[in-house]
Design a binder for these strands. Structure first.
Lengths: 224, 224
DNA sequence: CAAGAATGCGAGTGGTCGCTCGCATTTGTC
DNA sequence: GACAAATGCGAGCGACCACTCGCATTCTTG
């Protein structure tokens, strides 16, 4: 891979060392959307590394040169797609983990938290690919890591709200395990369709419920 | 990738259409072992696709030509490594899932089943890489799929022994979920060291116990 | 409409990778 | 020691890939 030596020389023109904000026409915006959609499709089929930029361009019905009119390199395509997904997530389901759910009974809370997460992943399979892919570029790993950390913090927060006396390391471990259990169940859910998928969703909720219930019941004996 | 057109012409010499059993010296056997060890190391660092055969040869301290003296192509290296791991598994821990464990109390059974699995994966990290890698060659996926299927069948068997009345689709789903939960916990275990790792092992067992306990207790009320 | 900018093209460039080939060296066998 | 087979080497071949460049076309703007 050429991997372009990125040694910028910040002399001569010190203005806008980062980007050239080229004026973009409506046609260009459409092309960008087309290319991101094509990239999502190709990434889902083959993963990041095996997805060739030429294949993405072909899937979008444009030439390689056109692709590079809108993205400086391959990584930027994945970053653009990741940004779009993260933005879509924040705008549509970002409030699913809000504090208001912390007071619900466990099964209700699991519905409130898991259902939007599952729905989003089912509708945007590229998200899971970039999330779990071992070859995802570092920049995206960082971005997703931030989201992951926020998710973890929220889960910790919810556990802490119910069990203030739980040692913090146990709380962290429990939250980490819960998130990983969800990810495992999610791949199982996404690898099935229709009724079978629904059954696995129910099973995943059972797992989470049985894992978290004893923890919460021991703290606040308001169980059934 | 050249991906050598494998169109064998089985005419002319119809004997041994599969292999050329070249006589191998002791030095050759050692080289094969060296190369497999180097491959395991490189695969662990970079995954299958990103691991270049030249890098494997360099890690083993030999030339690319020497590597191809012992393996016909890159895939064969991974297959050889996979075979070695599967063989090692069968000889060292293959009996961990034997029927004798089926009668143990749940926590004992989980120790008997999970501890060897965890130990093997910790000692052979390349196994997990080939197992979870999205770019693992199809032949290996099949081989591992067989092992996975056997594991699943054993788990189903153990569930069926305790709960003969459970519908078969529920039993299959439960076994599938249990195996996936284990895999998720395993990655969590393997990404930590020392005391933290032990804590995650205990947490994983807690997860499995809480998931499976209600199921088994409802069938045979011989609980604690 | 004219001019400049944005868009579109696709053959081409440098680079890496899987793999080969001719040849040298070591080992086993008589 | 003689001969062949097995082992070892590393420059190099062909294929693919990320990315570029010169040039044509379309849009915006005055």
């Amino acid at each position: 891979m050429p991997e372009k030596q990125q040694t910028e020389e910040p002399s001569e023109r010190q203005q806008q060392a980062e980007e050239k904000p080229r004026r973009r026409q409506a046609r260009g915006e459409r092309r960008v959307a087309q290319l991101l959609e094509a990239a999502a499709s190709v990434f889902c089929r083959t993963g990041y590394t095996a997805a060739s930029t030429n294949a993405i361009a072909r899937e979008a019905g444009v030439s390689p040169g056109t692709l590079y009119q809108f993205f400086p390199n391959k990584e930027a395509i994945a970053v653009g797609l990741s940004d779009q997904l993260l933005d879509h997530w924040a705008r549509s389901h970002g409030q699913a983990l809000a504090r208001e759910n912390a007071g619900l009974p466990l099964d209700r809370m699991l519905d409130a938290v898991l259902d939007p997460l599952i729905a989003f992943n089912v509708e945007n399979p590229a998200f899971a690919v970039l999330m779990h892919g071992a070859d995802t570029p570092g920049v995206i790993v960082d971005e997703i890591g931030t989201l992951h950390g926020a998710l973890l913090a929220r889960v910790e927060e919810m556990i802490g709200a119910r069990l203030p006396d739980l040692p913090s390391d146990v709380r962290t471990r429990t939250a980490n395990m819960a998130v990983h259990l969800f990810k495992a169940g999610l791949t199982l859910v996404m690898s099935h369709e229709g009724a079978e998928r629904d059954a696995y969703i129910a099973e995943l909720k059972t797992v989470m419920h049985r894992y978290l219930e004893p923890l919460l019941d021991s703290g606040s004996p308001a169980g059934h």
